[in-house]
Structures are given as C-alpha cells and as structure tokens.
C-alpha cells in the first residue's frame, strides 16, 4: 500500500472529473473541516492509497493503521474506487458509485421498465430514459438514476441531448460502464486481488 504518484493522481482525477463537477474538491477536503477541531481534521481527512493496483479512498487515520498489516495479508481498506490497468489507464469500479453520486455533473433518470435491463448489464435505450440533464455532450460520463432518485450505476452518453431527442426508441442513449447488478454478477472477482 502506497500513496499515488503524480501521473497516477492525474489519471485518477481525470477519470473522476469526467463524471463529477468541480465539487470533486470536497473529496480531498471535506466541508465539515472548518467546523471541527484541528485534531479531528487530520483524522477526517481522506486520502487515496494504491494497493495491488487498486485505488482506495480511505480515511487517513485508517490508512495509517493499515500500515501495520503486511502487504500480502491486506485485502482491502476504505472504498475501492477502481484499478489501474497494466497500460496505465484507470477503470472505475461500481464501488466508486457512492463517491461519485453526490458530485455528478450529468444525470440520466431511467424509467421503471428500463431498470432491470440496465441492472443486467444492458445499455440505456432511448425508450427507457425518463429524463436527462440538459446540455450534455456526447461521450460524457453520466450518473444513472432509477426510481426514487437512487443511483443504480454510471455510463457514458452515446449522443448529445439534442441529438438523442431525435433518436428512435430502440437506439442506445447511454453506454453502461458500471451498474449495481455487478455486486452479484461480479461477486467472485470484484474484491479479489491478484
């Protein structure tokens, strides 16, 4: 387990920034900091740690405690955001949904009939879209919300909002990147480290 290097940090933030807005800053410095004392500031501060090519978003005090566990014995800590591929790219995992969801820049609301196909790994079709954020460009990261404004995953827009309006109902509006169905589908591999 180690902190990220500069290029790694840049890659991670670039990926996160494609889904979130400028409020991503709150990840590094939680807004509750100003009200708390200096001691609790250091404990509430969250950091990014790389362990077995996976990036974890951890409370600093917990990360410090984790140093007492040997590398091969440590399985996971904090929230796993994703992993670095061997080519140096970063893949966001579904576990990062809770980190992304409050800061998402664009959102797509899926109708009741579109939830199950999405949770089984399908893309979001135009017919299944309830509504979407305005002024969204093509290839932009979006948060997918189900009924009752519950985040069920995230994806990438296939077309811009204006273009998507003219699409036929069976056309893909958003390409799936991750959905909460993965917790069951990828149960065997989601938390394994090799």
């Amino acid at each position: 387990m180690r902190p990220l290097t500069e290029p790694e940090t840049r890659t991670l933030f670039t990926k996160l920034a494609s889904y979130t807005g400028p409020s991503l800053k709150t990840l590094l410095s939680p807004p509750s900091q100003s009200t708390t004392t200096s001691q609790s500031q250091s404990t509430s501060r969250h950091v990014f740690r790389l362990h077995h090519s996976r990036v974890y978003y951890v409370r600093e005090s917990l990360a410090n405690h984790a140093t007492s566990i040997s590398r091969h014995a440590l399985l996971s800590l904090g929230t796993c955001l994703g992993k670095f591929t061997k080519t140096g790219q970063f893949r966001l995992h579904i576990t990062a949904l809770d980190v992304i969801a409050p800061h998402a820049r664009y959102r797509v609301w899926v109708k009741q009939n579109g939830e199950m196909p999405f949770l089984y790994g399908g893309n979001v079709l135009k017919a299944h879209v309830g509504r979407w954020s305005e002024d969204c460009a093509a290839g932009q990261g979006v948060l997918v919300l189900g009924g009752g404004d519950v985040a069920i995953g995230f994806g990438v827009t296939a077309r811009s909002t204006a273009e998507a309006r003219r699409l036929d109902p069976t056309a893909v509006a958003t390409f799936r990147q991750a959905d909460i169905g993965e917790y069951l589908r990828e149960e065997d591999t989601l938390f394994t480290t090799t």
Binding site: R2, E6, L28
Partner: peptide, 23 residues
C-alpha cells in the same frame, strides 16, 4: 524511485488543473 503526492496542496493543484482541462 517514485515521487508520491500525498499532501493536500499538491493534490488540490493537480485537481484544479484536471478540472480546468475537463471544463
């Protein structure tokens, strides 16, 4: 060896640069 970025200031600067690029 590797140079780690662990202090908040440098992380913030990287984030600001990345955000500006993305914007």
């Amino acid at each position: 060896g590797k140079i780690f970025v662990d202090d908040q200031e440098s992380m913030m600067t990287i984030l600001a640069i990345v955000n500006a690029e993305k914007e």
